[in-house]
Design a binder for these strands. Structure first.
Length: 530
RNA sequence: GGGCCUGUAGCUCAGUCAGGUAGAGCGUCGGGCUUUUAACCCGAUGGUCGCGGGUUCGAACCCCGUCGGGCCCGCCA
């Protein structure tokens, strides 16, 4: 059974109405790691609906969280905003400086980072109900839970200290008021008289905060279960950081009982890292944003990556050859006929499970029905994108005429972007040698050598366009009673230094005939000398 | 110190919850393909399941130990 169906089954054991929740703090650039959170939630919701449950998918934007520190991409002038809520501070401009102009137009720090992510979600076909946490506080959604938390400060303290094993300071209180400057740092609660919290800030200013009006926020470990309570969350996937023993899920599970609610079904997922570069980290700039990823990879494939990997498995996102293999695997999967495979007799349990999982992973990945014409492998398209500068030549080569499906246009555009990026693997890059490679020459077989002079002759006479070159190559081979295979191998060794290569006939016309012939002559000379 | 995840074919992984003669894809090798030659089709190759014990008629799977990798326990998906 696919992992999403396993979760759906757990949900069905608890009831028929569900709210699957995810949440992210918009403290910096979003990256593909965040996509796992949201895709996991999306897929669980879909599986739940498939199982006949009533499931809603929500995405909480933690815009009430404070700025923790001046991140590497921010100007030092942000230091004055540390401790201020992300919804209440200006967005950074291109230099990382506070952009007061946009801020005046209503764009907050949180909005700045959230907007591109929302666009990525559109592309990847995820449509959650967005909940802005700051607004939720302001509109009183947290009023009841905040009051309960403050009334039960001792119980909550006991839970956190016991479960997480950390000691809370004597003046700890389950409410972070906002001080006279707008910060929730360095402030001390001095009294609680429902619904008013009295406080004194680091500068000695005193004030009062009404917990029912969002004049502050609950600390994270309480904020989370409070959200479960007021939204009615019954399922939430979260990163392994929250899932550790004594982590926020463990404390939340007990705290939520005070709010007369049951903790949601949980699912801990592993992180996504960049291949060879370790974990995704905004501060080191070691990230790939969802939009950047989507400029290279079709959304279906990003979905497939998450759908086909069990949540507890770490994903290494590889923008090079790994991507090619993933994309080609996806392509093969789309062309499988699962109904036939499943009817086959004598399938072992394992085989059956593997087929079902692949089928479900594919269903969860598809955004729109695939058109027949789109079954071109990544490799093949990579080659076409490199050898044909005009789109129409690509369509011609693929045998698509008439109207070109939009999905194909998108794929080709992405491929061109990828080819021109530094992510594109050298292995797939088409490069003609400038000098004969002695290493490759040593690999020339007797047939290859025999063919070479004839090939040169024939190519010199050809019209230097695809069809003519094709004929030259195969007829030369036939004349010598050899398979065209040998002719191609000879050419690949001479021109590219490899035993195999992409289809030559469409590529050669893009190159200068004399240059190619000179190179071949040089190769021939080497073989004749030896 | 406490805890979580992970180690299976050259590579990426499935199989571990419900123990029953090691699986898939990629790669590699061989063949086919008179022309989508990095495509496609057919075939083959390939693993003492990290290591050591235990339970069992039988262990990749359960139990104990051990080694290696990643991570969490202040914030981070």
């Amino acid at each position: 059974m696919h992992w999403s169906d396993v979760v759906a089954q757990r949900l069905s054991e608890r009831g028929s109405k569900h709210i699957v929740s995810t949440g992210i703090t918009p403290s910096g650039e979003f990256h593909i790691g965040h996509l796992r959170e949201i895709l996991t939630g999306d897929m669980i919701s879909k599986a739940a609906r498939k199982a006949g449950l009533d499931a809603e998918f929500v995405f909480i934007v933690d815009s009430a969280d404070p700025l923790r520190k001046v991140y590497a991409f921010l100007d030092d002038s942000y230091s004055k905003y540390i401790g201020h809520q992300l919804k209440k501070i200006p967005p950074p401009d291109a230099n990382g400086c506070p952009d007061m102009q946009r801020f005046a137009m209503g764009v907050s720090y949180a909005d700045h980072f959230l907007e591109p992510f929302k666009k990525a979600l559109e592309q990847i076909d995820v449509h959650p109900r967005f909940i802005d946490n700051f607004d939720a506080y302001a509109s009183g959604q947290f009023a009841e839970t905040s009051q309960i938390a403050c009334n039960n400060a001792d119980k909550i303290r006991e839970i956190i200290e016991r479960v997480s094993g950390r000691e809370l300071s004597p003046d700890w209180f389950p409410w972070n008021p906002i001080d006279s400057n707008g910060s929730i740092d360095g402030i001390r609660v001095t009294g609680w008289d429902n619904p008013i919290v009295s406080w004194i800030d680091s500068e000695g200013n005193e004030g009062q905060s009404d917990v029912t009006k969002g004049e502050g926020k609950l600390p994270w470990r309480i904020d989370w279960p409070a959200k479960w309570a007021w939204i009615g969350v019954t399922m939430e996937p979260f990163g392994k950081d929250h899932g550790a023993a004594g982590g926020s899920y463990d404390t939340g599970k007990e705290i939520v009982v005070l709010f007369a609610q049951q903790a949601p079904v949980d699912l801990t997922y592993e992180w996504i890292s960049l291949r060879g570069q370790g974990a995704m980290s905004s501060s080191s700039g070691n990230t790939i944003g969802p939009l950047e990823a989507l400029s290279l990879v079709p959304p279906e494939i990003l979905r497939y990556l998450v759908a086909s990997t069990k949540p507890n498995k770490a994903i290494e996102f590889d923008t090079g050859m790994g991507l090619v293999n993933l994309a080609d695997e996806f392509e093969r999967t789309t062309s499988r006929d699962f109904s036939i495979e499943l009817e086959k007799e004598g399938l072992s349990r394992r085989q059956l499970v593997a087929i079902e999982d692949a089928k479900t992973a594919l269903e969860l990945s598809l955004i729109s029905p695939r058109e027949e014409t789109s079954s071109v492998t990544f490799r093949h398209l990579a080659m076409l994108a490199q050898t044909k500068s005009k789109d129409e030549d690509v369509w011609k080569s693929l045998g698509i005429d008439g109207s070109i499906p939009q999905s194909m246009v998108d794929r080709l555009n992405r491929m061109r972007t990828w080819v021109h990026s530094n992510h594109f693997p050298e292995e797939l890059r088409i490069a003609i040698l400038e000098q004969p490679s002695s290493e490759a020459m040593a690999q020339m077989s007797e047939e290859n050598v025999r063919l070479l002079p004839e090939l040169i002759k024939s190519l010199r006479l050809s019209n230097w366009e695809a069809a003519s070159i094709q004929t030259s190559i195969s007829s030369t081979a036939k004349t010598l009673d050899l398979s065209p295979r040998h002719a191609y191998r000879a050419l690949y060794l001479c021109l590219m230094g490899t035993e195999r290569g992409p289809r030559l006939p469409p590529i050669l016309p893009e190159l200068d005939q004399e240059t190619i012939l000179n190179l071949l002559d040089a190769c021939l000379q080497i073989k004749q000398e030896s």
